[in-house]
């Protein structure tokens, strides 16, 4: 569809009254000189409006800058991989993602496609310090968004690096599909800050991850991260089931084996698509034409997944990587962990 029907992304920036005076808000606005600022009382007045057209919004994202009095740190959800860490938390300082992946749970979780940025991270940092006083913390900071993709706008990763560098016991995962090597080149290397690249077969990336960098660029970024000795994780998660999936994942595994040195990869994560039934219901209503949303999933304990086929798929993927990486560095999500 012709892009001229839509306003360009971030043409409109809604700014909460209490966030308007924050230096972080002003810093972000300074990077968007063309944006038109609309003052709002509370981010939910815009973000939580009923009957929003998420499909149309995803073609013309608006930005909402907000301030949240409560820290945005939460315990990890059962459908998320904890990589053997008990104190597993995630932060949500940004809601929604600039990449428009068709299978993303965010499409079922939020009533809007617009991006909310809680500009002041200090309360979140303070909460992480409180958690660290109790023991080591494993923290995913890029779950409900892709922080790397919007780093030029927010500068949040730099703030996290500054925070993490003198906090032993804190391990951070940055989950991303971003292929910005310039960003990787300017951030320090910290042994407990892991870059986790989500890799999908080319066919999946083209069809279902339309706004994300193509597979080749993601692999190149991962290779660059490895060359800088940045702790590197590869995520084959979510694996999707579609006609011919075995061949597509075989090709993906072969590319990874050809292009990356396993000694430079900390670990890998393998998991099949799963989503809460509540979010799936929303996704089906909002994306009636999506084969991923319409797949007849198996429901168990409030989670929709490929059921017994999940184990078959993860075993298949692990088999493709056997001999390249040892099983003790492979982490799996399967039905048993639910």
């Amino acid at each position: 569809m012709n892009g001229t029907f839509f306003e360009p992304a971030f043409r409109y920036v809604y700014v909460e009254d209490r966030a308007a005076g924050l230096p972080q808000t002003r810093r972000i606005l300074a990077k968007l000189p063309q944006a038109h600022v609309i003052p709002i009382r509370h981010y939910k007045d815009v973000f939580n409006r009923s009957r929003q057209d998420i499909t149309a919004q995803s073609r013309s994202l608006a930005l909402i800058l907000a301030d949240e009095p409560d820290p945005r740190v939460y315990p990890g959800a059962p459908v998320c991989q904890n990589f053997g860490n008990d104190a597993f938390y995630y932060t949500s300082t940004v809601m929604n993602c600039v990449y428009d992946c068709e299978y993303c749970y965010l499409k079922g979780m939020y009533p809007s496609a617009n991006l909310v940025i809680f500009t002041d991270q200090s309360r979140t940092f303070a909460e992480v310090d409180r958690l660290l006083a109790r023991g080591p913390v494993y923290l995913c900071i890029s779950y409900d968004t892709d922080l790397a993709a919007i780093e030029p706008l927010t500068g949040f990763l730099r703030e996290w690096y500054a925070f993490a560098q003198d906090r032993p016991g804190l391990t951070i995962e940055i989950r991303t599909k971003c292929a910005n090597q310039a960003l990787l080149s300017t951030l320090p290397v910290l042994s407990d800050v892991i870059w986790a690249f989500t890799l999908s077969p080319e066919k999946v990336a083209q069809r279902f991850e339309k706004k994300a960098p193509e597979l080749e660029r993601r692999l190149a970024a991962a290779r660059y991260a490895a060359s800088r000795h940045i702790p590197l994780r590869l995520c084959f998660d979510p694996m999707l089931r579609f006609p011919g999936w075995e061949e597509e994942y075989r090709k993906l595994a072969q590319m990874v084996r050809d292009e990356l040195d396993p000694e430079q990869v900390r670990d890998i994560s393998i998991g099949t698509f799963r989503i809460s039934t509540q979010y799936l219901g929303q996704m089906r209503a909002r994306q009636p034409e999506s084969p991923l949303a319409q797949y007849p999933y198996t429901v168990c304990g409030g989670v929709a997944s490929y059921g017994a086929k999940s184990a078959e798929m993860t075993a298949y993927m692990a088999g493709l990587l056997d001999g390249w990486m040892s099983r003790d560095r492979m982490f799996f999500w399967n039905e048993r962990e639910e």
């Binding site: 001229t4 029907f5 839509f6 306003e7 043409r11 409109y12 809604y14 609309i38 003052p39 709002i40 009382r41 007045d45 815009v46 409006r49 929003q52 057209d53 149309a56 919004q57 073609r59 013309s60 608006a62």
Partner: peptide, 18 residues
């Protein structure tokens, strides 16, 4: 942005379409 003076409520039409 629309403000209803009698109630003080605000409403926001989407600004998606050019």
């Amino acid at each position: 942005k629309i403000t209803e003076e009698t109630t003080g409520r605000d409403f926001y039409p989407g600004m998606v379409w050019a």
